[in-house]
C-alpha cells in the first residue's frame, strides 16, 4: 500500500532517509518545472528546487502534518522563486543604471512592458518561446497562480493556501492574468499549433 506524503514525511522525521529519497523522486520534476517557469532559467530553478528539499530536510524534526504536504512544499518553492525573481530584477536594474549609456555590448533590459509586441517578435522567435515569455511577463504572483493552476493542476483552495490569499482573490488574479495573456498572445490564438516535432515554429 502506497504511503501518503504526510506518512512519508513522518517517516523522514523518524530518521528514514529512504522516505526522503521517495519524496525527492516524486516531486523533483514538478518543482524544477514550476521553478523554471517562475525564474526562466533551468540552472537557477534546479538550485532553488534543491534549496526547497534542503529546507524540508532541515525542518523534518519539527514537522507536524498541519497542512497538505504539497501546499507546504510549493509554498516554500513560491517564496524562494519570488525572492529570486525580485533579487534578479534589482540586479538588472542596478546593471542598467551603472552601464554606459551608449555601450556597444549592453543588452536591452528585459522588461516586459518595453518588449516588442508578440506579432513583431513572431517572425524571429519560436512559438513556444513566445508563450514562455508571455507567462514570464506576468506579475510574479499572477505567474505563480497560472503555473500552479495550469501545470500543477492544483485546486483553487490549495493554490490559495500556497499564495496565502483568499480563493476569491486567487480567481481575480487568474482572471487578470488570462486577460493579459489574451492580449499578449492574440496573434497565436487563431494560429493552430504546428505538429509536434517541428517544435511549433510558425510557417
Amino acid at each position: 500500500m502506497a504511503r501518503s506524503d504526510v506518512q512519508l514525511m513522518l517517516d523522514v522525521k523518524a530518521g528514514d532517509e529512504a522516505s526522503f529519497d521517495f519524496l525527492l523522486q516524486k516531486y523533483r520534476s514538478p518543482l524544477v518545472n514550476f521553478l523554471n517557469r517562475m525564474v526562466r532559467d533551468q540552472a537557477t530553478a534546479e538550485d532553488l528546487a534543491q534549496e526547497v528539499f534542503l529546507r524540508v530536510y532541515r525542518a523534518r524534526k519539527q514537522y507536524t502534518p498541519s497542512a497538505k504536504f504539497t501546499t507546504w512544499l510549493f509554498r516554500i518553492a513560491t517564496n524562494l522563486a519570488l525572492n529570486s525573481v525580485r533579487d534578479n530584477r534589482h540586479q538588472r536594474m542596478g546593471i542598467s543604471l551603472d552601464a554606459p549609456a551608449d555601450g556597444e555590448d549592453s543588452a536591452p533590459m528585459e522588461l516586459p512592458a518595453r518588449e516588442p509586441r508578440v506579432d513583431q517578435r513572431m517572425v524571429e522567435r519560436d512559438r513556444v518561446e513566445i508563450i514562455r515569455r508571455a507567462i514570464w511577463s506576468l506579475p510574479e504572483k499572477q505567474r505563480a497562480a497560472v503555473v500552479l493552476h495550469k501545470y500543477e493542476e492544483m485546486d483553487y483552495v490549495e493554490i490559495a493556501g500556497i499564495l496565502e490569499c483568499s480563493e476569491g482573490a486567487l480567481k481575480s488574479m487568474l482572471f487578470r492574468a488570462y486577460e493579459t495573456l489574451r492580449v499578449e498572445l492574440a496573434p497565436l490564438l487563431n494560429q493552430p499549433a504546428a505538429p509536434r516535432g517541428g517544435e511549433g515554429r510558425p510557417s
Binding site: S29, A49, R127, I131, R132, I135, G200
Partner: peptide
Amino acid sequence: LLGEVPAIEPS
C-alpha cells in the same frame, strides 16, 4: 496555448 509548453527534466 499554455499546454503547448513542454516540461523539462531535471539535469
